[in-house]
Computed example of a mutant assay.
Amino acid sequence: MSVIYVGKESYFHGKSLFQIARKYRNAGIGRMVMRKKWDRYEEPSYYRLTQVVPAMNVKGYHKGLAFGEKVFRGKNYGVCRIDSGYKFDWILVPKEQEQAIIDSVKSSYPTKETVVPYEVTVPPLMKMFISGELKAHGYRVSEDMFVTKRKIIKSKYSFAKLDKSAEDVPPAPEYKLMMKQVKRSIKKSDEKEIS
């Protein structure tokens, strides 16, 4: 009788990080581990363990606290906490293969940064509604009012950067105060209609 698998194939073939680490001296500190899930990426991804504290009160030793130097898709993120150590898809990299993986990280291409424009116009439908409200309450509408500036929050996971050529553009005029006045006048007109 043959077995037929239905649905998505599981990638949980292995042990938890803590089950692997507890079998080695110093809880595997200095060794290289990787997840089976990361095989789908072309660039190498791994952790080099710096600190492992297994939870001794859990049956099976599959939980705990771990830290390691993270290299994900060829980019080094420094020492991070390993949050997915309890999952059963960790593999210990043999010492003979560690150097080959480190060399492949050096040769992997750097991640391309996405360049985004510094200023963006408001979507057309929103522009139509706002200009209609402003005109209805007697305000002058100009095209400068519908240009917003972008701000990118820098993090170690962000690969986006602003277009440097557009950063010298003067800031778009503030119309928040005008919109507050419009909202107040709308509320007053609604109150008059109710009474």
Rank of each mutant, 00 (worst) to 15 (best):
V116I: 15
V169T: 14
A55T: 05
L49K: 02
G60D: 12
K154G: 07
K127G: 03
V53S: 02
T114S: 14
E43S: 15
K75H: 14
V3Q: 13
Y109V: 15
Y157T: 11
K36R: 14
K151F: 14
K70T: 00
L134R: 01
V71Y: 03
Y11T: 14
V105S: 01
D163W: 13
K70Y: 11
F146P: 06
L17N: 01
P94F: 03
S107P: 01
K95E: 12
F12H: 15
Q19P: 00
M128V: 04
G14S: 07
G85D: 05
D89W: 02
I153N: 12
K15E: 14
K70F: 11
G64E: 04
Y47V: 01
V52A: 02
Q99D: 06
N76Q: 08
G64P: 10
T114C: 14
I152Q: 09
E42F: 14
K192R: 12
W90D: 00
K154H: 13
E119P: 08
D163F: 05
K106E: 06
R48K: 05
S158A: 00
K37D: 10
Y24T: 03
K36Y: 12
K135Y: 06
Q97M: 07
I29M: 04
E119W: 09
D168T: 14
P94A: 02
E133C: 11
P54W: 06
A55I: 00
S195H: 11
A21D: 02
S108T: 14
I91S: 03
P124N: 07
H137Y: 13
S104F: 06
E133D: 06
G74W: 13
F12T: 13
S189Q: 14
K87S: 12
A136K: 05
G14W: 05
K161T: 12
I102C: 01
T148W: 12
R81F: 12
M178V: 10
P94G: 09
R150M: 11
A21G: 06
Y47Q: 04
G85M: 01
Q51P: 00
V120G: 07
E96R: 09
K161I: 08
D83N: 15
V141I: 07
G64K: 02
F88T: 13
A55R: 05
S45R: 09
M145E: 01
Y118F: 14
V93M: 06
K161V: 07
G60V: 08
V122L: 11
L134V: 02
Q51R: 04
M32C: 02
A136W: 01
W38F: 07
R184C: 01
V53Q: 07
R25H: 13
G14K: 00
P110V: 10
S10Q: 03
A66D: 02
E9D: 12
I101A: 07
V147Q: 04
V147C: 07
S84K: 09
A100E: 10
D144K: 05
F88W: 10
P173R: 05
P44Y: 11
K156E: 12
V182I: 01
E96Q: 09
G138W: 04
K188E: 08
S142L: 08
R31G: 00
T121M: 10
E98V: 04
G132K: 03
F72H: 13
